Amino acid sequence: MLITINENTLSLSSGNTVIFPHQTWEDYERLLNLRQEKSTPKLSFNLKTKEIRLMSPLPSHGNRIDTLRDLVKIMLGQKGLDWQCFDPITLKIPPKAGVEPDTCFYIENRQAILGKDKIDLTVEPPPDLAIEVDFTSITDIGAYEILKIPELWIYRQGVLKVYLLQGEGYQESAISRLFPDIDVKNILPKYVELGWNQGSSIALRQFSNL
């Protein structure tokens, strides 16, 4: 069965995406509560579009995000920067938007969230970087704009797109604000796909030796 929703269960078959139109914040919270402590399906809400999106990833999605996350950690380590990484995590500003990035990093704002069991974006700052792998779904960029995450990466079909928040919206950029001296758009996809085809350890080792 593709999707199951009842008073005790929320489940979605792997590799599928479902979009519910004409939804409210209360609908979104109800689905979050139904999912309980599970990390799937991922849920997002955008008040502007009134859409709730559900996505259940495939193993190929998980492998690519794991490799991409580890590549970012290597780059941060090489720059001598501390970070706090979260996944899974639900980021929301009621009643406007909620997202669950595949992974996200607090770097410049790391001190503000240390030791926090939950992050309240009405109080704490947003992550400095959020990353999504769109393997069977399309990220709702508009929801991220509402949360004002400064930098968003979306990886899809071997292409990494970098979005920087400019005012109220994102602009696609050739350069990462966090890693301006690294051509992340062209370098990282090579190692993400190498990790899938030959193994993550091989990809990470080769990247570390650049």
Score class of each variant (00 low, 15 high):
11 S>H: 06
37 E>H: 08
194 L>S: 02
29 E>Y: 03
118 K>F: 12
14 S>R: 07
38 K>G: 07
1 M>C: 10
76 L>N: 06
204 L>W: 00
164 L>E: 07
194 L>A: 06
168 E>T: 13
184 V>Y: 00
9 T>N: 13
37 E>V: 11
185 K>D: 04
45 F>N: 05
203 A>I: 08
51 E>V: 09
96 K>V: 12
152 L>Q: 15
37 E>Y: 02
25 W>V: 09
116 K>F: 02
75 M>L: 15
104 C>A: 04
159 V>W: 07
69 R>A: 04
92 K>M: 12
96 K>S: 14
174 A>S: 06
196 W>I: 10
118 K>M: 11
161 K>N: 10
28 Y>T: 05
80 G>T: 08
50 K>L: 08
118 K>Y: 07
67 T>S: 04
142 G>C: 12
156 R>K: 13
29 E>K: 13
186 N>T: 09
31 L>G: 04
204 L>I: 00
24 T>L: 08
7 E>K: 13
37 E>F: 08
141 I>T: 15
84 Q>P: 02
138 I>C: 06
55 M>S: 11
8 N>D: 12
57 P>K: 05
112 A>I: 00
1 M>T: 12
52 I>R: 02
85 C>D: 04
29 E>L: 14
7 E>D: 15
12 L>K: 04
26 E>G: 09
171 Q>R: 14
61 H>W: 02
104 C>W: 03
42 K>H: 08
40 T>L: 07
156 R>S: 13
199 G>M: 10
199 G>H: 09
74 I>F: 00
194 L>Q: 10
18 V>Y: 14
70 D>Q: 02
179 F>P: 00
161 K>W: 04
93 I>K: 15
98 G>W: 02
194 L>G: 06
200 S>D: 13
207 F>H: 02
155 Y>Q: 13
201 S>P: 02
48 K>L: 14
137 S>K: 10
111 Q>S: 11
19 I>P: 03
205 R>Y: 00
23 Q>D: 08
20 F>C: 06
70 D>T: 01
122 T>G: 04
49 T>D: 12
27 D>F: 00
82 D>E: 13
95 P>R: 05
119 I>W: 01
62 G>E: 15
68 L>R: 01
200 S>P: 11
180 P>K: 02
6 N>I: 01
152 L>C: 13
202 I>R: 14
178 L>Y: 01
61 H>F: 04
3 I>M: 14
195 G>R: 04
139 T>S: 14
29 E>P: 05
17 T>P: 08
